[in-house]
Structures are given as structure tokens and as C-alpha cells.
């Protein structure tokens, strides 16, 4: 009985911080999403009005919302898979190479990680510029516009996203792999397991907790992608072909001062991400040892 109270006491500071930082903003978000709340209401020009689920019905009834949602899910999935593949491959590579190459690779990755998203996106945009871009000059593709086609534009933005996101995955997984006792891998090798098999059946299962964090982080980051799309496709691409949910929310709601609608989009995004994350955690739990 006493230990139960102790646990609650110890939880209290964290709970207070969480309540202040999350519960209150989330309550406000939910509240605004059921109000007619535009700039006129914020500055007191007009009274605030309760509109019930109007913002939600407006959003869900908008055909563009669904196509943007679909594109966002597809784009985020591709980015997560690519980021994990590149990050994991390089993490394994880091454990195999000698000190100097390891240092160089780490430094290069850190540099990519440290570049602010806006600068990074702008540099990528310059590299692939239609007339003056380095890539077009190199390939002799003068006048080829990479952002004209929907999929080439998405692929290019995806490359920039992966470039900025893989260092986190690489470093985290490298730390995880380094923590695996050498004896375990050695034992597997002695039993005749190939490198490939040892990776999938020894290293990956032991990395599960680390992998879970990395995957969830990647899903959340890539689903909420904003900067790269906004900068590289100049706010959503030709005729809005490269819009993702966050850019769409910004364009439809915040730039237009429709805070009620924007909050509704925020709530919908939060629910989707929460569902995806819980589903993923559940699958992990079902398929193996508890985390």
C-alpha cells in the first residue's frame, strides 16, 4: 500500500509537467476545433461562436483532403522505409570499418544532421535547378524540370528527407549494435550462421526496443513533413500535386486565419498518428517478447 503511494508521489512532478505541456494545449486544440474561430474572433472584431462539428464535416467532405491524406501516407511510408534501410545499412557498416573511415562517415552524417531543414532543402533545390542546377549540368539535362512531374518531385523531396533523417537512425542503431555482446554474434558465427542470417536473427531481435523508438520517431516526423515540401516545391508543387497534410493544413487554415479548421486538421492528424503508433506497438508486443 505504502509503495503504491510512493510511486504516485514520484510520478507527480512528471505528471504536472505533462499536464501543463500537453493536456492544456490539447484541450485548447479540441476546443478551438469546434468553434468558428478566425482572425476576426482573435482580435475581438466578432464574437466567438460554437459550431459543433462543422469544421470536421467541412474537412471530411473536402475531396482534396482525402487525396492529400493518401499522398501523405504513401510519401511518409516510402520515406520511413528508405530512411530505415539507409540508416540501418550504414549503422552496420560503421561496426565493420576501421577507425578513420568510421570517423569520416560519422562526421559526414553529423554534418547532414546539423544542417537546418530550410537551408538543406534550399541547397537541394539549387542542385536540381532547371537551368543552372549542378545535377542538370552534370547529366546534360539542360531545361529538365525535376519538379514538373508529381513523382519525380516527390522522389526528390523524399531524397532530401532521407538525407536529413538517416543520421539519427544510423547513430541510434549503431549505439544499439555496439551494446550487443560480441560473444553472442561470435557464437552465431561459430554455429555457422551467415552474416545476413546473423543480422536478421540475432542483431535485429536484440535491437527491438531501439528499433521501435526509431520507427515511431520516423513515422511521426515523416507524416508531419512540412519544411522540405514547403520549400522545395514552393508550397505544394504544380497545381498542388505535392501537397502533404501539414502543408495543406497551413495553406487552408493558418495562412487563411481559419484557426478552427486548422485545429480540426490538427486533431485528425493526432488521432491518425496515435492510431498508427498504438497499432505498431501492439504488433511488436504480439510478435515477440515484451518491450
Amino acid at each position: 500500500m505504502r509503495s503504491r503511494f510512493t510511486a504516485l508521489w514520484l510520478l507527480l512532478p512528471a505528471a504536472l509537467v505533462l499536464a501543463a505541456l500537453f493536456a492544456y494545449p490539447m484541450y485548447q486544440l479540441g476546443l478551438i476545433s469546434v468553434l468558428d474561430f478566425t482572425q476576426a474572433q482573435v482580435s475581438g472584431g466578432q464574437p466567438t461562436r460554437f459550431v459543433g462539428l462543422d469544421n470536421y464535416t467541412r474537412l471530411l467532405g473536402d475531396g482534396q483532403f482525402w487525396s492529400v491524406l493518401l499522398a501523405t501516407v504513401g510519401f511518409a511510408a516510402a520515406c520511413v522505409i528508405a530512411t530505415l534501410a539507409v540508416g540501418a545499412a550504414l549503422a552496420v557498416l560503421l561496426t565493420r570499418v576501421s577507425r578513420i573511415p568510421r570517423l569520416l562517415l560519422s562526421l559526414a552524417a553529423m554534418a547532414a544532421w546539423a544542417v537546418p531543414a530550410v537551408s538543406g532543402s534550399t541547397v537541394w533545390m539549387f542542385l536540381f535547378d532547371t537551368d543552372l542546377g549542378f545535377v542538370n549540368q552534370l547529366l546534360g539535362l539542360d531545361g529538365y524540370n525535376w519538379f514538373y512531374g508529381r513523382y519525380t518531385a516527390f522522389a526528390l523531396v523524399g531524397a532530401a528527407v532521407v538525407w536529413a533523417a538517416f543520421p539519427f537512425v544510423m547513430v541510434t542503431l549503431y549505439a544499439g549494435i555496439s551494446a550487443i555482446p560480441g560473444s553472442v554474434v561470435e557464437a552465431a558465427a561459430l554455429d555457422g550462421a551467415s552474416t545476413w542470417r546473423a543480422f536478421w536473427q540475432i542483431i535485429v531481435p536484440m535491437l527491438r526496443p531501439v528499433l521501435a523508438i526509431v520507427v515511431i520517431q520516423s513515422i511521426i516526423w515523416d507524416f508531419k513533413i512540412f519544411t522540405q515540401i514547403y520549400v522545395m516545391t514552393r508550397g505544394g508543387g504544380l497545381a498542388g500535386q505535392n501537397l502533404t497534410l501539414n502543408v495543406y493544413a497551413y495553406q487552408q487554415a493558418f495562412a487563411s486565419s481559419e484557426y478552427g479548421l486548422g485545429s480540426a486538421i490538427g486533431v485528425v492528424m493526432m488521432l491518425i498518428l496515435l492510431a498508427v503508433t498504438l497499432l505498431y506497438l501492439r504488433t511488436l508486443r504480439r510478435s515477440g517478447e515484451p518491450l
Partner: peptide, 26 residues
């Protein structure tokens, strides 16, 4: 651990909101 992960996830997807306060023009 599961709860902690879920909390971490909730943490990462926090969306900031402005209070629906209304100022009256002076």
C-alpha cells in the same frame, strides 16, 4: 515500457494551440 513509448509518441506529436482568448479593442 509500453506506456512510456506511447507517452513519448504523444510527446512528439504535440500540436501547439493558441488559447481562444479574445482581446477587446481599446
Amino acid at each position: 515500457m509500453r506506456l512510456r513509448l506511447a507517452t513519448a509518441a504523444a510527446l512528439a506529436l504535440t500540436l501547439t494551440a493558441c488559447a481562444p482568448s479574445t482581446s477587446s479593442p481599446s
